[in-house]
Design a protein around this nucleic acid. Structure first.
Lengths: 138, 138
DNA sequence: AAAAAAATGCAACTTTGTTGCAAAGATACC
DNA sequence: GGTATCTTTGCAACAAAGTTGCATTTTTTT
């Protein structure tokens, strides 16, 4: 695990620091998406708020994590699949938000459906967020 | 127009106040979704920030407007279709965000595709946000 | 037109996010 | 392994976004 973490950071040319290791570990351990707030809560050692913001930004830039759109003004982040490279996210899976437990998860096995747009529109990216009851809460 | 506004407020059992009339008018005039910030900007008379928050909340509760999920931590609101009733939103159209002009619009004519979830999951609602270039910017 | 109910504005506060800068830490080089 | 260089961190100070309680004003009811 520790090796995998260092490996990921190295591969993305990020210096290996305690904060980055810890936050990346959180993502690897968690199977649901994390908001900034969740991260600060779950980390026992206290890192400055600013550090967490900058770490998430760095991970985003490198394509290690991606954001999940929400309707409640909280950005959620989740690990990208291996083939997301620096600056080019191509996560084509859908996201699921459980109304009971609140968890947001990536359903990697479910691909986004194709959408037919009206004349004149050009689609770059399609985001699908399904809400309902997850496996555990159903 | 003025009649329609009063009509909508009355139908939803909201008292008819200047702020509500003005904000509702904004939504009716605008064909793109509005963020809290946009509303404060576009209104010439100044209403208190708190009033705008509470008005949006009231409109949400009554099913007059709905939120559109975004990945950039800004809640956008748009008018619901007529058949959204108090507490029961059922807007099954997709949303489009233009990367050029930034406008967010409801594509009422495009219905959300059906999504097949893994065993055990139960879907209540499917949100689709497509980003790319809109008719004007393309 | 007066009484009752609801909405507004204000102040004070909390939470969330940003920026510049000095100190601490990581990397590269000898 | 130790030092120079470059990067990251934490702090302070700030800006923006959102919330709450309460007195005043406005709307609705009778």
């Amino acid at each position: 695990m520790k090796k995998q973490i260092v490996e990921i950071l190295r591969k993305n040319q990020l210096s290996i620091t305690d904060g980055r290791k810890k936050i990346l570990e959180l993502f690897l351990e968690s199977d649901s998406a994390l908001a900034h707030h969740d991260i600060e809560e779950k980390i026992q050692e206290k890192f400055d708020r600013v550090t967490v913001y900058r770490t998430l930004q760095a991970f985003m830039d490198k394509g290690i994590i991606h954001t999940i759109p929400t309707a409640d003004n909280s950005i959620k982040y989740a690990l990208c699949k291996d083939d997301c490279e620096q600056g080019h996210h191509h996560d084509d899976h859908i996201h699921f938000v459980c109304k009971q437990c609140g968890q947001t998860i990536c359903l990697d096995e479910v691909h986004v459906p194709s959408v037919r747009l009206p004349q004149g529109y050009h689609a770059d990216q399609v985001e699908v967020v399904v809400s309902g009851l997850c496996k555990e809460c159903n």
